[in-house]
Computed example of a mutant assay.
Amino acid sequence: MSDRRRSLLRLEISRAAVGLFRAHGVAATSGERIGAEVGLSARTVWRYFRTKESCVEPVLHRNVDHVVATLRRWPPERTLSEHLLAEYRPPADPEAAADADAVLAVIALSRTEPGLRAVWLAVHERAEPVLAEVLAARLARASDDVEVRVHAAAIAAALRISGEDLAAEVAEGATVSDPVARLCVALRAATHGVGAAAVTTVHTDVRAGDPE
């Protein structure tokens, strides 16, 4: 099976699993039921996913990948907030919009489902090296530089927290604030001091033994 076909099949299983979790709950959804939803055996499902909760990973990754793709286009003359407000848009096509809605459902379920919570956290942890590469290119620093890695971890946390806040509003039926503006606030906090000059100054001071 080609990598593309494998990825598409994983995404198909993922969407089916999220739909069943939303309709019936995690406990009442078995691997057999997930497989049957897409015409596969449970054995085939377990070839692609280690647990039923991990079936949600592809849908969650699509959401993170969308944000990362926008960050890769971040031009040097703009702040991150300026770039996001100008360029970032939630997915517009029906399929991608449905996946974005599924992500919010998974986040909401993860508040009471430890297995889903673990997957949600792991997806953002695995995004950190990719985010570090984006920042490293912007700052002309190595991606394994400790300050770059810390900023990448902060951005991953900002993505997670803004998503959790949005999902909570949706689940509670509250008036939903602008998701892009919310993301900007979180990322502004995460990237405070990311400017090349500021990071270089901190790096120099630490090497010189200055505790400040």
Score class of each variant (00 low, 15 high):
69 A>W: 04
96 A>M: 07
104 L>V: 02
145 D>Q: 07
99 D>P: 00
78 R>W: 12
144 D>E: 14
139 L>Q: 02
135 L>S: 02
130 V>W: 05
83 H>W: 13
65 D>Q: 12
75 P>V: 10
89 R>F: 04
109 L>I: 06
105 A>C: 11
101 D>N: 10
93 D>Q: 11
142 A>M: 06
65 D>A: 15
144 D>L: 06
77 E>I: 05
76 P>E: 14
115 G>I: 06
106 V>D: 00
88 Y>F: 15
112 T>M: 05
74 W>L: 07
88 Y>L: 15
112 T>I: 06
116 L>A: 05
123 V>H: 00
67 V>W: 01
88 Y>A: 10
93 D>V: 09
95 E>P: 00
70 T>N: 09
79 T>R: 06
127 A>S: 14
95 E>G: 09
79 T>L: 03
116 L>K: 02
125 E>D: 14
86 A>M: 05
94 P>S: 10
99 D>C: 11
91 P>L: 04
120 W>H: 11
125 E>S: 12
133 E>Q: 14
138 R>G: 06
84 L>T: 03
98 A>L: 11
114 P>I: 10
86 A>W: 08
95 E>A: 15
145 D>V: 08
136 A>I: 09
71 L>P: 00
81 S>Y: 01
95 E>S: 13
82 E>P: 01
117 R>A: 11
133 E>C: 09
130 V>K: 09
90 P>K: 11
78 R>C: 11
85 L>D: 04
97 A>Q: 13
107 I>T: 06
122 A>H: 13
80 L>V: 15
140 A>K: 12
111 R>W: 10
114 P>D: 09
77 E>L: 05
137 A>Y: 02
135 L>V: 08
128 E>V: 15
134 V>S: 06
101 D>K: 11
80 L>G: 01
98 A>E: 13
90 P>Y: 12
91 P>N: 08
81 S>P: 08
74 W>P: 00
133 E>P: 00
146 V>A: 14
97 A>M: 09
103 V>F: 04
81 S>W: 01
118 A>I: 04
64 V>C: 01
135 L>P: 01
146 V>L: 14
126 R>K: 14
114 P>W: 05
147 E>S: 10
118 A>T: 12
128 E>D: 04
116 L>W: 02
101 D>E: 15
137 A>I: 03
124 H>F: 07
66 H>V: 02
76 P>V: 13
80 L>E: 02
66 H>Y: 06
122 A>Q: 15
61 H>M: 12
124 H>N: 13
68 V>Y: 01
91 P>V: 09
71 L>F: 09
141 R>Q: 13
123 V>K: 00
